[in-house]
Design a binder for these strands. Structure first.
Length: 547
DNA sequence: CTGACTTGCGCC
DNA sequence: AAAGGGCGCAAGTCAG
C-alpha cells in the first residue's frame, strides 16, 4: 500500500511519497488527493480533524488514512510495544495534541500546535515501533480501525443527522407550551411549579434548585437525602407526581429545548462532533449537543430526507457476546447463539429468569456484587468459567495497579497517572486504609469493565470501517458528484448502534450490508470462534420508528 | 463577579 | 459491612 505523508508548510502542503516530496498549494490539495485516490493509497497526516473536513467540503472522500495523533495515543499505552522506539523529544507534544472542532473548514487554525510537529518522523517511529512488536498484526488492525473511525467521524459531522426543526418545535410546544420569552418558564412548567409549591406548602420554592427542593421535602417530613427521581418514586406524597413531571419537562427544556435547536440544528441537520478514541476504553466521545445522549423523547424529529430512509441497526447485547468470544467461553457463546443471549441462558438452565440473567451478566462486567447480581456469581462462574475468569483476572490486575488491555492491545491507563472523569485519582497514598481499599476496588471495577467495553469498541470500529466501505461501493451508480452525502452514508454511531441515511431504493441493500459488515467484524476479531452478533435492523423514515 | 465543583439526568 | 463501568451537558452552588 502506497503511503503519502502530508505536511503543512504555510500555504503549501508537502506530500512525502517514499523518497520524493511534492509541494502542493493548499488550494490544490483536494484535486491532488482526488487524483491519487484513483489507486490504493493511505494518507498519513497528523490529525484527521485538521485535514479531512476541508477535503469533504470540496467533495473529496478518501479511502484510507493513518491518523498519527490517534495512533500515537494507542501506541503510547499499549503493552505490546517497546516504548523506547516511540520516544522522542516531541513525544509530549504528540501526547498533548487535541482534535479541532471548529466550524471553519476552510483554514487550519492559526498558531496550531500541530505545526511544530514532524509527521514524517513520527510516522517512521510508529512504523519502527510496530515492526518490533510481537503483536504487530493485532496492533495494525487496531490502528487501521481507529484511523478509519476518524474518517467516519469526520464524514458524519460533514453530513449531519437529518433533523426536522419544525417537528421538534411542535413536540416542544405540545409538551411545554409556546416558547417563552427569555427568563420565563414555559406554561407547563409554571403550572407544575405551582402544584409543587402547594403540595409542599412552600410558596416561594424554586423547583429548579435541588437544595431548596430537598429542604422543602424534609420540612414536609419526607425521609429523603436527595431529590433524584428514583428516590422520589419510592415515597408517597402529593408532591411526587408533579415534581417528577416537572423534572422530566425541565430536562427536555434545558437539554433539548429551543436553545438546543438554535445552537445545533442548521439547514435541516443536527451537527455535532464525534471524537474517536475520546474515551480511555476506545469508545467515542462527542462534543456539542449531547450527541451521544439524544433522548428517545426527541428522536421523532430525526427524519430522513424526502425519498430517503434511515437504516437503523444495533447489536443485541454486544458486550456479553464480546466477552464470550474474547475469553473463548464456548458455553457462553452457545447461550449467545440465540438472538437473545439472556433468554439463551434461561433455556440452558443457568438461571431461572431473563431478568436474573441480565442482572448477573451486567454485574459480572461492571463489578456489581451487591444484592442479586452478587448472588448470581457462583452460578455464572460454574457455568461460564472462562468468561468469568477473564473479568475477574482483569479486576484483580487493576487492584494490583497493573495495566490491562483489550483484545487488540489498547492499554488501560496507569492508576493515578492521569485524571479521569469520575474515579478518584489518588497519586499518593492518602487517607485511611479503608479509603485505600475502596479506591483499589474501584480501580478493579474499572479495569474489569475496560477489557470488555474496550474490546466491544474494537468490534464496533471494525463494523463501522467495513460498513463505510460497503456503503460507498453500494452508491456507485448513484447520481451525484461522488460526494459522501450523495450515496448511502453513516450519519450516527452510538457504541453499538448506527444510523445510515440512504436513498430509499437502496435501503434493502444497505440493511444487508450492515449485517455483512457485522459478520466481517466478528471474523476479524475472533476468527472462527463460534459467536454471533445478531443485529436488529429497521428501515424507517424516522429514528423514533426503530427499536 | 468568575471559575470550579456538584447535582441530576440523558445515552450505551 | 459494603462493594455498579463509560460518557456530556446545564443549572445550581459555593469559595475566592
Amino acid at each position: 500500500m502506497n503511503r503519502i505523508v502530508l505536511v503543512r508548510r504555510g500555504d503549501d502542503v508537502d506530500a512525502h511519497e517514499q523518497a520524493s516530496v511534492t509541494s502542493v498549494p493548499l488550494a490544490d490539495l483536494p484535486a491532488f488527493v482526488r487524483e491519487h485516490e484513483a489507486t490504493p493509497v493511505r494518507w498519513v497526516w497528523d490529525d484527521t480533524t485538521r485535514w479531512y473536513p476541508a477535503l469533504l467540503a470540496q467533495g473529496v472522500r478518501v479511502a484510507r488514512c493513518a491518523d498519527l495523533r490517534l495512533q500515537h495515543a494507542i501506541l503510547r499505552r499499549t503493552p505490546f510495544t517497546d516504548q523506547r522506539l516511540l520516544a522522542d523529544a516531541s513525544t509530549a507534544e504528540w501526547d498533548a495534541l487535541q482534535p479541532v472542532t471548529e466550524t471553519d473548514t476552510a483554514l487550519f487554525p492559526l498558531a496550531d500546535p500541530a505545526d511544530r510537529l514532524d509527521p514524517v518522523a513520527e510516522h517512521d517511529r510508529q512504523l519502527a515501533t510496530l515492526a518490533a512488536s510481537p503483536e504487530r498484526r493485532r496492533l495494525e488492525l487496531l490502528l487501521a480501525a481507529e484511523s478509519s473511525g476518524a474518517l467516519v467521524a469526520a464524514e458524519m459531522t460533514h453530513a449531519g443527522l437529518p433533523w426536522r426543526a419544525d417537528l421538534h418545535e411542535r413536540l416542544l410546544t405540545e409538551q411545554l407550551g409556546p416558547r417563552p420569552v427569555a427568563g420565563h418558564r414555559p406554561a407547563a412548567l409554571e403550572r407544575l411549579a405551582a402544584e409543587i409549591r402547594t403540595a409542599l406548602g412552600a410558596p416561594a420554592l424554586n423547583p429548579d434548585s435541588p437544595v431548596e427542593v430537598l429542604r422543602a421535602l424534609q420540612t414536609a417530613g419526607l425521609p429523603v437525602e436527595d431529590t433524584r427521581s428514583w428516590t422520589l418514586v419510592q415515597i408517597e406524597h402529593p408532591v411526587v407526581a408533579p415534581l417528577l413531571a416537572y423534572k422530566k419537562l425541565a430536562r427536555l427544556l434545558t437539554a433539548n429545548g429551543w436553545s438546543w435547536l438554535d445552537t445545533w440544528v442548521r439547514d435541516g441537520r443536527f451537527r455535532s462532533w464525534f471524537l474517536p478514541g475520546g474515551v480511555v476504553t476506545g469508545r467515542w466521545a462527542s462534543n456539542g449537543g449531547g450527541a451521544l445522549s439524544v433522548p428517545v423523547q426527541i428522536r421523532p424529529a430525526a427524519v430522513a430526507d424526502e425519498g430517503w430512509r434511515f437504516v437503523v441497526a444495533d447489536v443485541a447485547q454486544l458486550e456479553p457476546r464480546v466477552l464470550a468470544a474474547m475469553s473463548g467461553d464456548l458455553a457462553m457463546a452457545e447461550a449467545a447463539r440465540a438472538t437473545d443471549l439472556y433468554q439463551g441462558m434461561v433455556d440452558a438452565g443457568t438461571v431461572a429468569t431473563r431478568a436474573e440473567a441480565k442482572l448477573g451478566i451486567l454485574g459480572a462486567m461492571y463489578g456489581g456484587t451487591r444484592g442479586e447480581s452478587g448472588r448470581m456469581m457462583p452460578r455464572l462462574t460454574r457455568r461460564y468459567p472462562a468468561a468469568i475468569a477473564l473479568v475477574e483476572e482483569a479486576a484483580r490486575a487493576g487492584e494490583r495497579g497493573e495495566v490491562v488491555r483489550t483484545l487488540l492491545g489498547r492499554g488501560s491507563p496507569v492508576p493515578g497517572g492521569e485524571r479521569m472523569a469520575d474515579l478518584g485519582e489518588p497519586p499518593e497514598p492518602s487517607g485511611s486504609r479503608q479509603e485505600e481499599d475502596r479506591r483499589r476496588r474501584a480501580w478493579g471495577r474499572f479495569t474489569r469493565n475496560f477489557v470488555v467495553q474496550g474490546t466491544a469498541a474494537e468490534w464496533a470500529l471494525c463494523w463501522l470501517a467495513d460498513l463505510r466501505n460497503r456503503l460507498w461501493r453500494l452508491g456507485e451508480e448513484q447520481p451525484g458528484e461522488g460526494r459522501i452525502e450523495d450515496r448511502p452514508h453513516l450519519v450516527f454511531f452510538l457504541h453499538d448502534e448506527v444510523l445510515v441515511h440512504t436513498p430509499e431504493h437502496l435501503a434493502g441493500q444497505v440493511a444487508e450490508e450492515v449485517r455483512l459488515a457485522a459478520v466481517t467484524a466478528g471474523r476479524l476479531l475472533f476468527g472462527g470462534f463460534p459467536v454471533d452478533f445478531p443485529l436488529d435492523v429497521a428501515v424507517v423514515r424516522s429514528w423514533a420508528e426503530a427499536g
